[in-house]
Computed example of a mutant assay.
Amino acid sequence: MIFTYNKEYVGDVLMVIAADSQGAKLAVERKGRVARVYREDSGETVAWNIFQVSSLLEIAERGQIFLTDEQAAALNQELSKEGFAAELVNDREPKFVVGQIVEMEAHPDSDHLNICQVQVAADKTIQIVAGAPNAKVGLKTIVALPGAMMPKGNLIFPGELRGEKSFGMMCSPRELQLPNAPQKRGIIELADSETVGTAFDPAKHWQG
């Protein structure tokens, strides 16, 4: 789940994105200060809006935020009070991490995409379809995992590119809005000494 808050532009509303709506027609069910957004075709919950959230939590950040377990429990208590049986899952794992391309093959239905197997933890490798011209086996870069919100506000969900499954995105300096980022295409290139799975730290991972 992705938690976002921007009081200046949206108001005192905590938005919780639970799933990719995939363009489906949506409906809203509201009880008190809690609104559930769901797909009309399947009933699947895709988001929650919690209004006047500052009376429940103190939030200083703007954009994607990460809750403490105590804050998540307070929100779940509010959902229960309003009659919703669902529970918000508080995922506190980093969503931008150091990854390494360990395998790469050309996409069978594209002249510029590659299907990459990218190690993102000591015990985890995911498939990412990418068109970066500098992608190569052995390269270490920054990976946005499902559940990440990019600086421009777009969300990372599992998906497909031309029929091939993709579970994240390898990021360019420009996409991460890093200072003095080159405007040319290409994912960020990290030193070989960086450790796979380490959370992204702009001060450490970028000397633009």
Rank of each mutant, 00 (worst) to 15 (best):
155 L>Q: 02
123 D>A: 07
130 A>W: 05
126 I>E: 15
133 P>Q: 08
136 K>S: 09
128 I>P: 14
136 K>E: 14
129 V>N: 10
122 A>S: 15
151 P>Y: 02
118 V>I: 10
154 N>Y: 12
115 I>D: 02
156 I>Y: 10
116 C>T: 13
116 C>Q: 13
144 A>W: 03
132 A>C: 02
159 G>W: 00
149 M>P: 00
136 K>P: 01
133 P>L: 11
125 T>Y: 03
125 T>D: 04
162 R>T: 05
153 G>H: 02
123 D>E: 07
150 M>T: 01
140 K>E: 07
153 G>C: 03
121 A>F: 01
131 G>Q: 14
119 Q>I: 08
146 P>K: 05
127 Q>T: 13
155 L>A: 00
152 K>R: 13
153 G>W: 01
126 I>P: 10
162 R>G: 04
145 L>R: 14
124 K>A: 09
126 I>V: 11
140 K>Y: 02
149 M>S: 09
118 V>W: 00
115 I>F: 08
141 T>G: 10
144 A>L: 05
139 L>P: 03
164 E>L: 11
118 V>S: 01
166 S>Q: 11
147 G>H: 01
151 P>M: 09
146 P>L: 06
128 I>W: 13
155 L>P: 01
143 V>L: 05
159 G>T: 06
115 I>E: 12
114 N>E: 14
122 A>V: 11
160 E>V: 00
162 R>S: 06
147 G>N: 08
143 V>M: 06
156 I>W: 05
160 E>K: 15
139 L>I: 13
131 G>I: 08
146 P>A: 04
144 A>I: 03
136 K>C: 07
128 I>C: 15
164 E>A: 11
147 G>I: 07
136 K>D: 06
160 E>L: 09
148 A>D: 10
154 N>C: 02
143 V>A: 05
134 N>D: 12
140 K>C: 11
163 G>Q: 10
134 N>G: 13
149 M>W: 05
161 L>R: 12
135 A>Q: 00
152 K>E: 06
150 M>L: 14
142 I>H: 05
145 L>E: 01
139 L>A: 11
129 V>D: 03
143 V>P: 02
132 A>P: 12
146 P>M: 04
134 N>Y: 02
133 P>I: 06
130 A>C: 15
164 E>H: 14
146 P>N: 04
145 L>T: 12
142 I>F: 04
155 L>N: 00
148 A>Y: 04
131 G>N: 12
117 Q>Y: 08
152 K>V: 08
146 P>T: 01
163 G>W: 05
